[in-house]
Design a protein around this nucleic acid. Structure first.
Lengths: 330, 330
DNA sequence: GTGAAAGCGCTAACAG
DNA sequence: CTGTTAGCGCTTTCAC
């Protein structure tokens, strides 16, 4: 495999000229350019990014940490990140942490080892301390999930207000007995959305029933299903359920079908995220839309800015309650 | 940021010793080891993978090319790849091609530029020529999709036989009028599954109706929905539908609900892939299970072997027809 | 078991 | 506009 020396020699110029040919074309005379061009083609030369990166002490790689690759919520975010990254000649190193500290360590090391220039993390559930320590010397952006006191820039939505509006929607439809299918409280969004749920109930002095708050260990369909089973097995059946994730809501819906209950007539259902699948369920799911793609784009922009040494500010984006059949009927 | 020189100096040894400390601990005396260890901690030293990679002319990055990140079919495969990669100290560079040649070019360059050591591609739809050319000088494995004549190793399932069995299942249930919702014929699996479908019909001399073969441009829910709309809008309504992807099947199911048709009594439905969602629909989807995780693991193993210079063989894995409510009822 | 030294392939002063 | 040269931070012979 030819290197820059070989090209220089074949073209009868210096390595500097060849290097300039790639980095600042206009600084090379037309004559040299032609010679270099030919030599490159002849030798089938491809510059080594490895060497360039070492020389520039940058990797042009962005580390993206997500808890679960199978959660479609992240797909859209990643799309946004990817688009911005490519436009800025960055690539992304996608890493699934499984919320597993050991894995996270491996990935954190990637940036310590200069293998990545910065991190976008969507999983600050584990090891906030490590994250903060790392942020002292490396560019980091938090997306969606964030550790408030960390001082690390984030882009997110107002989770509490979003949950509040979702539950108010149910209340305005006449529901007075509303259950909550939550995820693990280690997540900030989980705590915030629970607050929103409670605030919405309080506003109308609606009954608050601990039996109706289910906290799931994981964010899989099955967890939503089991949660709903628990709710239906209780003494009083609520008339509506708010799930903090479409995945959980879809699992819950499955269980409602099993129990041969009609949605929304027997039990109304609201999800969260507006993943693509939420519109394909029967009935289609009322849900809170997060601007996933936008969040991804912004995170990437912010991270790249931070890598460049610019200051970046936290951003809170708008959400939108999308009302569909699972609360309104058809 | 400290480098290996600083550590050597602080420890009172040579850089070679520090290097050995990381690469072959046993080659360093206990005494030196201690000194180096201390120096590392004191200086908070982290070796530069960039420099090591340049020296070794390897990147320890595996390029993974997928058409669409939002297709859950790929998530599971990626999981498999990721697990094997990590165990072998590789990382994956996940790239979404969108089946867009330009993007693909960018990614192909990553391996030409030594930024990645090899490629696992799941999208040989575009630019088979480039792929073949690249494979001449770089390790490449094809996963699921493959260009037959390319000579590039692949791991896949027997798409034709899988489709055949899926359609035979419908026929055995008494269905005689079976539509096919296919994806784009640029995909090998699409052509193979269509063959299987036709072969299954032929076996019983069942009517073959061009109106009942719909080819979708993309693999989104909406395409399945539109395909089903077309089918329902035709002169004769089939009693069963085979969709070559769960995503398309789920879209089709949506449309069947719209039309207030019962699945499976009015129209039976079979999907393909066994993505997680396929069990959450109402009714649950009969589908062909692909061993996605296994496919990912194998591809990664094969690629790493190939990078090491070993010979690798094509692999065809088993599939499994998973019969659920959308064909059997409940 | 250890050190000196030669690169890996490139970029960026610097001088001309 | 061009060439010379000194590294980027590491690994790996080759002597000792």
């Amino acid at each position: 495999m030819a290197n820059i020396q070989d090209v220089a020699q074949a073209a009868g110029v210096s390595v500097a000229t060849v290097s300039r040919f790639f980095n600042d074309r206009s600084a090379v005379s037309l004559k040299s350019r032609k010679k270099v061009d030919e030599a490159i083609k002849q030798l089938n030369y491809e510059p080594s990014v490895l060497a360039r990166n070492l020389r520039k002490t940058e990797s042009r790689l962005l580390l993206v940490l997500i808890p679960k690759i199978s959660n479609p919520f992240y797909s859209e975010i990643i799309n946004g990140i990817q688009d911005v990254a490519i436009n800025n000649r960055y690539n992304i190193l996608l890493c699934e942490t499984d919320s597993n500290p050991e894995r996270e360590d491996i990935y954190f090391n990637l940036v310590r080892n200069k293998m990545a220039d910065g991190i976008i993390t969507m999983d600050p559930a584990v090891q906030v301390d490590s994250l903060i320590e790392l942020a002292a010397s490396h560019p980091i952006i938090q997306c969606s999930e964030y550790a408030v006191e960390s001082g690390i820039p984030y882009v997110t939505i107002d989770h509490e207000e979003a949950a509040y509006q979702a539950v108010r929607h149910l209340i305005q439809l006449g529901h007075k007995e509303i259950a909550l299918i939550n995820s693990h409280e280690k997540f900030l969004y989980s705590r915030k959305r629970e607050n929103g749920y409670k605030r919405a109930l309080e506003k109308d002095n609606l009954p608050f029933n601990e039996e109706w708050i289910i906290r799931c260990e994981e964010l899989e369909f099955i967890n939503g299903q089991l949660a709903m089973r628990k709710i239906l097995g209780g003494n009083n059946r609520p008339t509506a359920v708010f799930a903090v994730s479409d995945l959980l809501a879809i699992g819950a819906l499955k269980e409602l079908h099993h129990a041969e209950l009609n949605v929304p007539n027997d039990v109304a259902l609201v999800g969260f995220d507006k993943i693509a699948f939420s519109n394909m369920t029967y009935p289609a799911l009322t849900t809170v839309a997060q601007p996933m793609y936008e969040m991804g784009k912004l995170s990437a922009k912010m991270l790249i800015d931070k890598i460049k040494g610019k200051e970046v500010e936290n951003v809170t984006l708008d959400f939108e309650l999308v009302i569909r059949e699972s609360t309104l009927g058809r």
